[in-house]
Amino acid sequence: MKKSLDKGFITPHPVLIIGTYDENGTPDAMNAAWGGQIGGNQISISLSSHKTTDNIKLNKEFTVAFATAAQIAACDYVGIVSGNKVADKLAKCGFTVTKSDKVNAPVIDQLPVTIECKVIELQEEFKETRVVAEIVGLKADEEVLTDGKVDLGKVGLVVFDTVGLCYRTVGDSIGGAWNVGKKFE
């Protein structure tokens, strides 16, 4: 029998590492879990007051890298420590960056998949900023590609479990989309 609980949730959440430059061109990154894809070429991220939020408002461009199991400590660190207090937090956790050729934002070299984004809309509400952006590019390390496409089985993606307050790895494929259900036809 199902039991009624006090609070609902949607989980898991992707662990997104948001990369930006500040007014001096200094790279910054933060860990954000409140985001997702909208349709085929847009994303939405909800951010509270952060240096990254200010940088997005300033430049209207940013990158989103996907956290991996191999880099989970560094990915967690950039979410724990504020860029307003620790200017070299990327270097402290071992991240290096390369400037994107599509947007004015850094690509974290140690994370194998990054999307490049341009802001479409900023919505300020309830001490939160919702960023809606167009995906204008994708960078992926060759090691995570199969037949020229990102192979999620090779990336080592992690998700944020809002119930357990932990990171979990993304598992194996359990069936083909728009295929496995055909057994009921």
Rank of each mutant, 00 (worst) to 15 (best):
K92G: 07
K85M: 13
G39M: 02
G39W: 01
V86L: 05
G40W: 03
K92D: 13
V64N: 09
L58C: 04
K85G: 08
L58K: 13
I43S: 01
N84G: 15
V81C: 06
K89E: 09
K85N: 13
S48Q: 15
A65K: 13
H50N: 12
D54G: 02
E61Y: 03
Q71E: 15
I38V: 15
G40R: 14
K57V: 09
A87H: 05
K60Q: 15
T68I: 07
G40L: 14
G79V: 01
K99M: 11
T68C: 01
T52G: 06
D76G: 09
I56E: 01
I72Q: 12
K99W: 09
K102C: 08
A65M: 07
T63H: 03
V78S: 10
G40F: 07
F95E: 00
S49V: 12
T68E: 05
T63P: 04
F95L: 03
S48N: 12
E61F: 01
A65T: 12
K85T: 15
A74C: 06
S46C: 14
T52N: 03
V97E: 06
A105G: 09
L47I: 04
S48E: 12
V64Y: 13
G39L: 01
I72E: 13
S48D: 12
T98N: 06
E61K: 04
N104P: 05
V86Y: 02
V86G: 04
N41F: 06
V64M: 10
L90E: 00
V97C: 13
A65S: 15
G40E: 14
I38K: 11
S44P: 02
N84A: 12
